[in-house]
Amino acid sequence: MIDIENITKDYVMGEEVVHALRGVTLKIHRNEYIAIMGPSGSGKSTLMNMLGCLDTPTSGRYEFNGKSVAEMDDDELAAVRNREIGFVFQTFNLLPRSTSLRNVELPLIYAGIEPERRMERATQVLTDVGLGDRIHHKPNELSGGQRQRVAIARALVNGPSIILADEPTGNLDSKTGEEIMDLLERLYERGNTIILVTHERDIAAHARRTVHLRDGLIELDHAGFIPELDLPIAEMTST
């Protein structure tokens, strides 16, 4: 489904050119549960932006469901994000003055769905994530875990090909974090494809496949979660 071949990304920072990605090749199939790990500066965020079609690579090939993403313009990318990708952010990124329902409806508005179907679909998804009784609450009336559920509902509402979760538990206590991870697990079991970007090992441990990035390159890509292998690199080298 996702086919990345030798992509690079350079940023110009003042006079210096930063090579955030130096040639990454990655294939992700339907209904995978994959964690992307790496220390800060490893190119993890840049890769996530590429996968989420928020940015285009400097060079290399990126095919999403057989369509080349690398050459798309802003509006085409927006359309791909709208239909194919569900974002879950560390900071939830809900619109503060809108109710849960309106937040979840947002991608449907951009997709041009009629108001009645929008309402029906958004209510359905909110009920699925366990917030059927919170649809008219605004974000500040919800707990952190509930907010992230709203965000997940919003990510799911358009039936995307992948859920892209960037540190989804980063702003939550560990108990609530576990609940969110359970929800993602359930979504995976129901056939969703999940890409998890994290630097936390116990969060990455939920995934079925782990990709380690370091200095803009893939260092390790293996199935499952092997505690020894998935130690932070710094720790591995020091022991």
Binding site: L54, A78, F89, L95
Partner: peptide
């Protein structure tokens, strides 16, 4: 956020 959710220019 809106752009990530598919808002066009």
């Amino acid at each position: 956020t809106r752009k990530a959710l598919g808002a066009r220019r």
